[in-house]
């Protein structure tokens, strides 16, 4: 008697892996985030070869020298890049409705901060002036979203 082979239809196995991490933000990134949370201020560092770097890393990405003094920069700036997300990805993107990822060169800074614009998206173009929209005092927790978003001004 021949043995019948099992069905040839391919099966699959679902796996969901979650590995929670708790990253220390260290003295430099931690101070940047403390500035957002406690002071509603945006701090950068003066860095050889790069000028005022926001957000700061504590060293120069150009020549590896140690970063210099802390410098407060404005919460207003200019968009240097705009990616308009028409179809946000759930559980990844910071908004369920259309928004724009942007790079913002804040006044007083020489590098650009990655963030988002949430409203008036048709005005979010490279070169547009933007202003930080701060989260309420009891909502700021020391993350990038202590600035909820940037809004286009003027």
């Amino acid at each position: 008697m021949t043995q019948a082979a099992p069905t040839a239809a391919p099966l699959s196995q679902r796996q969901k892996m979650e590995f929670p991490y708790k990253h220390s933000t260290g003295p430099t990134i931690g101070r940047f985030y403390a500035g957002l949370k406690e002071q509603k201020k945006i701090w950068g560092q003066r860095v050889a070869g790069q000028g005022v770097v926001v957000p700061p890393l504590g060293y120069s990405e150009i020549d590896a020298s140690e970063a210099g003094e802390w410098v407060e920069v404005s919460d207003r700036g200019t968009l240097t890049a705009v990616a308009l997300v028409h179809h946000p990805i759930a559980d990844l993107h910071p908004s369920a409705k259309p928004f724009a990822f942007v790079l913002v060169k804040l006044d007083g800074a020489d590098t650009a901060l990655a963030h988002i614009v949430s409203d008036n998206l048709d005005t979010a173009k490279v070169g547009a002036r933007v202003q930080a929209v701060w989260a309420a005092d009891d909502k700021r927790s020391g993350t990038l979203r202590d600035i909820e978003s940037f809004r286009v001004v003027g």
Binding site: H23, I29, P55, P94, L144
Partner: peptide, 19 residues
């Protein structure tokens, strides 16, 4: 610390570069 938590994906960063 700064970039991944914002939710940037490669299509969006490519669009930033294209812009």
């Amino acid at each position: 610390y700064y970039q991944a938590p914002l939710g940037l994906d490669p299509t969006s960063t490519a669009a930033l570069q294209a812009s």
